[in-house]
Design a protein around this nucleic acid. Structure first.
Lengths: 228, 228
DNA sequence: CTATCTTTGTGTAAACTTTACGCATTTATT
DNA sequence: AATAAATGCGTAAAGTTTACACAAAGATAG
C-alpha cells in the first residue's frame, strides 16, 4: 500500500498594538466569487525543513518576518479535513513586534491582513481550532517565558508591558506589584530615553536585556508571573 | 512538482518501578547481523488519525496499552533522516503504570523491552534526540500536571510517589513538606488498605481521585509543585 | 502662576506559602 | 525490652504575594 498524505505548514502569527491582539490572516479566492479567510501556510517542499517552509510561506504570502517562531501542534486526526487529499498540518506559533503590523503590500501580500483576535471570521478547514490552541499557548507562555517582549518594540514603557499582559490574559493586574515583580528579575532595564505624551508624568523607556536573561537561565533562574 | 514525503508516528512510552524510570524500545533487525534499537512506531495509514496510528503500532510492536497519551513534537527538519525517502515523524509521549512493565511477549512483541533511561543505547535515526525531548517534557509536566499518578498503580504509598518525584526530577525533596503539599490539594485520598513491608511502620495506601481533580480544575485550581 | 488632571514612580503592612526541621508512632528484629 | 526503620504530624522562621497609599512630574485651564 502506498501512503498518500500531504504535509503542510500553517503559521499563527500574533501581533500587538494599543491594547489589542491581532492575528495575521490571508484572504483566498476559491472559484470566482467566494473568498475564504485562512492562516498563511502551504505545502512543504520535498527537501525543505518544516521551519524553513513556514518562513518561506510567510514571506511569500504576507511579506512578514517574525521575531519568534516555535512549533505549536500537528493537526492530523481530522482525516477528511480537505476533501480531495488527506493533509496533515504542522502549525507554528509566531510573534512579531508592533513595528511590523503595517504590512508592506508586496508581491502576493495584498490579501494579508491583521485581524483582531476577538473579530476572527470563519476560517478555512480547521483553522479556527488551530487559532484557539495558539491563543491558549500564548496565554500560558506569557506567564512562564518572557515572550511578551517579542510583541513590543525594542524600547517600551512599563505601562505598555502591563497593558499587554492585561489584554492577553484578560485580567486586571496591579500596576505597582507588576512593575516590582518584573524589575526584581533584573533583565528589564531602564534606559535614558524618556517618553513625552500629551498627558501625565513622562515615563522612562525600558528594554529587555537578552544577555542578562540567558545568564540568569544558566544560573537556574525560572521566569514566572502569576496573578490571581 | 509532486510532494513525496512519508508521515510516521513514534511513541516514547515511560514506565516507572522501584525508583527507576524506563522507556519502551524495540530491537529491529537490519539485514542479517545488525540489530538496531528504536522507538516503537511506523507509517500512518491513509485514512488513519495520527493518534490511532500510534496506538495501533504500540499494540502491534509491543502489546502495550497506555494510560496517558499526548502529542510531543513533530520532527521534520532533518531532511535526510532516512536515506531512501524523506520521513517526518510525529512523536507521541505516553505513560503506563508499573503493572504493565512486564510485557506479554505476544505476536511481534518479542523484541520490545523496557530500558532504564540512563542506559539507553544508540538508537536509529534521530530517536535519541526525541527521547531527550520527551524526558524534558516529563520533568516539566510532573510539576504542573498530576501525571505522576499515571506511572503508579491505582493504590500507592506516599513514599512511592515521593521517590518517583525524586527520581524523575533528580532532586532531593523533603518528605514531610511533599506530603503536606500533595494532601493540601485534596485529590489524593487515604484508603483503608495498609501495606506491610518487612521493615518500618506499616503505611496507608493512597489513591488519586480523578473526579475530585476535575472538579477542582473547573473551579480554577491549578496544580503545581515546586522544589528548589 | 497656581490649581487640577493624569500618569509615573516608590513604599509598606498584612496575609499567605514555602522551607527547614523535631519528634512521636508503629511495626519487625535482636 | 531495646533498637532500627519507615510513617505520620506539627511548628517556627524566611520568603512571596497581595492590597493599597501617596509623592512626583509634566500638561492644561483659569
Amino acid at each position: 500500500m502506498i501512503q498518500n498524505i500531504r504535509v503542510a505548514v500553517d503559521a499563527i502569527v500574533f501581533g500587538y498594538q494599543n491594547g489589542k491582539l491581532y492575528v495575521l490572516l490571508i484572504q483566498q479566492k476559491f472559484g470566482t466569487n467566494e473568498t475564504y479567510w485562512a492562516l498563511p501556510g502551504g505545502l512543504v517542499g520535498n527537501d525543505e525543513p518544516l521551519k524553513e517552509a513556514v518562513q518561506r510561506e510567510l514571506k511569500e504570502e504576507t511579506n512578514v518576518e517574525v521575531n519568534y517562531l516555535e512549533q505549536l501542534y500537528t493537526f492530523g486526526d481530522d482525516v477528511f479535513r480537505d476533501t480531495r487529499n488527506r493533509v496533515i498540518s504542522v502549525a507554528y506559533f509566531a510573534l512579531v513586534d508592533s513595528s511590523k503590523l503595517s504590512i508592506k503590500a508586496d508581491t502576493d501580500a495584498e490579501h494579508a491582513q491583521w485581524i483582531e483576535v476577538n473579530q476572527i471570521p470563519n476560517l478555512a478547514f480547521d483553522h479556527n481550532k488551530i487559532v484557539q490552541k495558539a491563543i491558549e499557548r500564548l496565554k500560558a507562555k506569557l506567564t512562564y517565558q518572557p515572550i511578551g517582549f517579542d510583541l513590543l518594540p525594542k524600547y517600551f514603557l512599563f505601562s505598555e508591558l502591563e497593558t499587554l499582559y492585561c489584554t492577553i490574559l484578560e485580567k486586571e493586574i496591579d500596576r505597582r506589584n507588576f512593575r516590582k515583580k518584573i524589575l526584581s528579575f533584573g533583565f528589564v532595564e531602564e534606559t535614558e530615553k524618556i517618553s513625552v505624551h500629551n498627558t501625565g508624568r513622562p515615563a522612562k523607556f525600558f528594554q529587555f536585556n537578552t544577555q542578562k536573561y540567558n545568564q540568569l537561565l544558566q544560573e537556574g533562574f525560572h521566569f514566572e508571573i502569576k496573578f490571581a
